[in-house]
Amino acid sequence: MADPTKDITNFGFRKVIKDNKMHLVSDIFHTVAEKYDLMNDLMSLGIHRIWKCFAIKSSGARRGQYILDVAGGTGDLTAKFAKIVGEKGEVVLVDVNDSMLNIGRAKLRDKGVLGNVYYVQANAEELPFFDNYFDCISISFGLRNITDKEKALKSMLRVLKFGGRLLVLEFSKPIFPLLTKFYDAYSFYVLPRLGKIIVNDSDSYSYLAESIRMHPDQDSLKMMMQLVGFEQVSYTNMSGGIVALHRGFKF
Rank of each mutant, 00 (worst) to 15 (best):
N40P: 06
I84T: 11
G115F: 00
M22T: 11
M100W: 06
L108Q: 15
L42N: 07
I56A: 09
N10A: 15
E90S: 13
N40R: 01
L68G: 12
V113F: 04
M39I: 05
H30M: 10
F134E: 05
S59C: 06
H48A: 03
G75H: 08
I56D: 12
E90T: 15
G104C: 02
H23S: 15
A61L: 01
E125L: 01
L101P: 01
G64S: 12
E87Q: 10
I103Q: 14
K107P: 10
F13A: 10
V32C: 02
Q121W: 05
A79K: 14
S59R: 06
M22G: 11
V94A: 02
G72A: 01
L127F: 05
T74Y: 01
K15T: 04
T31I: 13
K111Y: 07
D110Q: 15
V70N: 15
V96M: 10
A79R: 13
V16L: 02
G89P: 06
T78F: 01
G86Y: 01
I8P: 01
D98W: 08
F54V: 11
K57P: 00
L24P: 04
G104K: 06
P128I: 05
E87V: 06
T74P: 00
A79C: 08
H30N: 13
S58M: 14
H48C: 09
H48Q: 07
K21Y: 04
F81R: 00
S26D: 13
V120E: 01
K57I: 02
V32G: 04
D95H: 09
F11N: 07
N102I: 15
D19C: 11
D7G: 01
M43K: 03
H23V: 15
V25N: 02
D19M: 14
D98E: 13
L101Q: 05
A33I: 10
E87T: 08
D69A: 05
L24Y: 08
I47T: 14
V94L: 00
T9K: 09
T9I: 08
V96S: 13
N123S: 10
E90Y: 12
L101R: 00
K57M: 08
V94C: 06
G12P: 04
A106R: 15
I28P: 06
T9G: 07
L93C: 13
M39K: 03
S99W: 15
V70F: 14
F130W: 15
G12H: 02
W51D: 08
P128M: 03
I8M: 06
E87G: 09
T74V: 07
V120A: 00
K15V: 04
I56L: 14
W51Y: 05
T31L: 13
Y66E: 15
I28V: 11
M100L: 09
A106M: 12
I17M: 12
S59P: 07
P128W: 08
M43I: 09
S58G: 15
K57C: 00
C136A: 11
D27A: 12
W51E: 00
I67L: 11
C136S: 14
A71F: 01
T78E: 03
S59V: 02
V25Q: 02
A55P: 02
G60E: 03
K80V: 08
L68C: 10
D7N: 02
M43V: 14
K88W: 14
F81I: 09
M100I: 02
D41P: 05
